[in-house]
Simulated scan of single mutants.
Amino acid sequence: MTLATLCLTAFLSICTAVGTPAIPVAGTIMVYVVMMGLGLNSDLCMIGYSLILAMNYLPGMAVITLNVIGDAATNVIVCAKEHCLNKEIYNSKTPKNK
């Protein structure tokens, strides 16, 4: 790879990372976009990309689960600090309707 190819790779990676939403398999789609932008669309490159997809599935599920738990915990902490959390309802075993 030449210096120009590395610069193009960095530019494409930054552009796709900015536009990549936080969705499952977004990182692997970003890799595909960068590969196509660099002209890496041979059969061997597609086999390598397929291996990335296969290996990314299980860790991706774990990351999504941790992300959801972290977002939920952050919401509870911020609501508690802002005194918006009704601790009686939050700690109750059954949901209460108003």
Rank of each mutant, 00 (worst) to 15 (best):
M30N: 00
K96Y: 03
M1G: 15
N86Y: 05
A62V: 14
P59T: 08
L53N: 02
N67T: 14
C79E: 15
V63E: 00
K93T: 02
T20L: 06
A62P: 09
M46I: 08
V34E: 09
T28L: 01
L38R: 06
V76G: 06
I29F: 02
V68G: 02
T74A: 02
A54Q: 12
K93F: 15
E88G: 05
I89D: 06
Y32C: 07
P95K: 04
N86Q: 05
M1A: 10
F11V: 10
V34R: 02
I52R: 00
I52H: 05
T94E: 12
M46D: 06
M30E: 00
T94C: 08
G60V: 08
N75L: 10
Y32K: 06
I52F: 10
C79S: 14
G39K: 05
M55I: 15
I23N: 10
M55T: 15
M36I: 11
A17E: 13
I89G: 04
I69Y: 03
A72Y: 12
N86H: 07
A22T: 10
G19L: 15
P59A: 10
A26P: 05
A4P: 12
G37Y: 02
K87Y: 13
S92Q: 07
M1I: 10
G27R: 05
V76E: 04
V76P: 05
A80N: 00
A72I: 13
V18Q: 06
P21R: 00
I89L: 07
M1T: 11
A17G: 05
G19C: 14
M61A: 08
V34C: 07
S50T: 15
D71Y: 00
P24D: 12
L6E: 15
G48L: 11
M46K: 14
T74I: 04
C45K: 04
T65Y: 01
I77T: 09
V76L: 15
P95H: 01
G70L: 04
N75C: 00
Y32E: 14
I47P: 00
L3H: 03
G39Q: 05
V18D: 01
L66A: 04
S42E: 08
L58R: 13
